[in-house]
Structure formats: structure tokens, C-alpha cells
Amino acid sequence: MPAPAPNPPRETQRLQWARSASGQPALGLQRASVDAGFRSYWRTVGETPSRIVMDAPPGVEDAGPWLRVRDLLEAGGVRVPQVLTRDLDLGFLLLEDLGGPTLAQVIDADSADAHFDAAIGQLLRLQAIVPPSELGTFGEALLQRDAGLFEEWFLRRHLGLQLDCDDSDRLELAQRRLMDNALAQPKVLVHRDFMPRNLMPVVPGPAVLDFQDCVRGPIAYDPVSLFKDAFLGWPLARVDGWLRRYHQRASDAGLPVPPLDTFLRDADWMGVQRHLKILGIFARLHHRDGKSHYLADAPRFIGYLDEVLPRHPRLQPLAELLEQRVKPAMQALAAV
């Protein structure tokens, strides 16, 4: 009995599927974006209008959660990509093409107010959706995992720091206070990466991308992610103004935001927690996955921390650790 024919290479499968799904036997594909995970996105070439093929290879990526959250968000009025054809067994989806540039690529100092006002509108719709129980909760376990990323990957693996007892105590105290603050906040549906890079400037919109990791979590998480982005920096005074604008609109919409002073503190602390986590993720992408370009933005997060930590004496242990151990280690590494 002859052996079964081996599966064609993934790029061949992808092109064959795209041609069949679109009914265009001569179209081509070109990469549309690079993802930090195993998903990839490809734009069709040779047909009008163009489409996007999402490639989620079975065994390493499951498109099912993405589809379930997409449907949930659409039902709540959030602008998300339209799905034209799907094949979950092969791991391919054919999506509408929302265009080339993301919000991160078109926003500037002059247009930021208008773009962020539109983004807040989408965020308020997202946060008004009741989170289904199967999405999980941004709770103690997830916060502990996020905290571990900073110490394991950024401090130990990337900077080569071995913390002594005093350093470990300072970091643990700060992380515990950050986690307690996050756990005490009102809970809503949280995107977890609601930033300009994951927003597409279309009308109506912006359209929201990369939403498959939604959970039930702290209300301040997504607003601070939007204004203190991994790849774009803004003056602190403008960020504070946008956070106030979000708070007013969220309050008017009936979302469970606390009083303004409490919310601004929560946003600061949530931002600190997120910045530490992202430093760990960027270091992991570099050392484990060979995706080193993310580390170029690490100084941005140290800058965010430098801006905010002086406002909050209860986070002084973290500020001391950064000044005495982390910054000298980063400088030494940069000099190598």
C-alpha cells in the first residue's frame, strides 16, 4: 500500500486555500503584518477588493478563540474584521481587508485627540459587554504570572541580575501592592492589548484587532494601555488629560469607574504593572523566540516608570530597585 502523500509546505497550502476560498485561481499573497505569536496575516494580490488571509497553523495556534471573541465583540457593537470564509481544520480565515496602516502609523500630535476620542468610543462599547465566564478572569494567577515575567526574563535572563534578599523583598512588596490594586478595581471586559497598533483607522471605527485574549479584569487596564503604548510615547500631561476624558465618558456611559482621583491612581498603578510585564515579554521574545527588535522599545518603559513612580510613595521600593540595580545593569549591557 503506497504511503500517503506528505502535506505540502505551509506557504503552498496557504496560497492554494486562498485561491480556492476567494474563487480567484491566479491571485498571489504578500505578508500584511508580523505577529508576536505564530499567527500570520497575508494580503491577496491580483483581485479587487483585496482580502486578508489569517494563517493560524494547527498545533501551535487555534483560531477558535479569536472567532468566538470576534463574534462577542461584534454583537456588542464593536467594529471588528468581517469573516468571509473559514477553515478551522486547516487554520485559515479569509477576512475583509481593513487597509494597510494601523492607527499607530497614522496618529501624530495634531491628530491624536480625534483618534483617541474615536478609540475611547470603541473601548466603551467593549467594556459594556458582559464577559462570558469561559473567557476567564484577570485574577491572582494571571497577575502572578505577569509579575514573574519581569523577574525571570528581564532581570535574570536579559540583564543577568541575581537579586539579593533586600532587592527581592523590595520587588515582591511592590508587585504585591500592584496586584492588590488590580484585584480591587471594578471588573469589566478587558482586551489586554488595546493600543494604536491594534486599531485600524476605518469608518466607522477604529476597528479593533488582536482581541483573542480578552478576559474579565480591571477597568483601568485598557485605558492606560491605549495612552501608554508599547511603541508610542506621549507627554504625561496629555496622557493625564486623555485619562480624564475617558473617565468622564465612561461615567456618562454608566460603566463602573471609581471617583476620578481613585481612577487616575489605579491607571498609574495598572500602567506600572503592565510596563513591568511587557519588559519581561520583550526579553522573552528576544532570548527564546529570536525576535529581538522589540527590545529597542525597552527604554520607553523605563521612562514611563520614571514619570509615574515619584507620584506614589507606596511604590518607592520599586523606584529604588530601578535606580540602584536595573538602570546600572542596562547601562552596562548597552556598553558591551
Score class of each variant (00 low, 15 high):
Leu295Glu: 03
Val308Ile: 14
Val106Cys: 12
Ala119Val: 12
Ile278Met: 13
Ser33Phe: 02
Leu93Met: 07
Leu305Arg: 01
His287Gly: 13
Gln122Asp: 05
Phe263Met: 00
Arg157Phe: 05
Leu173Arg: 10
Arg192Tyr: 02
Cys214Pro: 09
Ala298Gln: 10
Phe38Trp: 03
Ala253Met: 11
Ser111Leu: 06
Asp213Pro: 00
Trp234Ile: 13
Glu323Arg: 14
Lys228Tyr: 02
Arg68Lys: 15
Lys291Asn: 12
Val188Asn: 11
Ile52Tyr: 02
Asp240Tyr: 02
Met179Pro: 00
Ala207Lys: 13
Pro58Arg: 14
Leu264His: 02
Arg79Tyr: 10
Asp180Met: 13
Arg216Glu: 09
Asp266Phe: 09
Met200Leu: 08
Ala112Leu: 07
Leu88Phe: 07
Val224Glu: 02
Trp234Cys: 10
Arg156Gln: 13
Arg300Met: 13
Pro6Arg: 08
Leu27Lys: 08
Leu161Lys: 05
Leu149Asn: 08
Leu149Tyr: 09
Leu90Gly: 10
Asp113Cys: 05
Trp42Arg: 01
Leu189Gln: 04
Ala112Arg: 04
Leu135Asn: 07
Asp210Glu: 06
Gln127Pro: 13
Asp297Asn: 13
Val188Pro: 12
Ala184His: 06
Asp289Ala: 05
Leu103His: 06
Glu47His: 12
Val308Lys: 12
Leu189Cys: 03
Phe138Lys: 09
Phe263Val: 04
Arg274Gly: 01
Phe301Gly: 02
Leu72Phe: 03
Leu260Gln: 11
Arg284Gly: 14
Arg238Gly: 08
Ile129Ala: 12
Thr44Ile: 00
Ala220Tyr: 02
Lys327Ser: 12
Val78Met: 07
Leu305Phe: 01
Leu149Gln: 08
Arg86Leu: 12
Leu232Cys: 09
Leu178Tyr: 04
Ala104Leu: 03
Lys228Asp: 04
Ala128Glu: 10
Trp234Phe: 05
Met330Arg: 11
His287Cys: 14
Arg70Ser: 13
Gly254Lys: 00
Ser225Gly: 02
Leu318Cys: 03
Ile52Gln: 01
Leu29Cys: 04
Arg197Gly: 06
Asp166Lys: 01
Gln122Val: 00
Leu161Tyr: 10
Leu305Cys: 01
Ala329Phe: 10
Gly46Cys: 09
Phe154Gly: 04
Pro49Asp: 03
Leu295Pro: 05
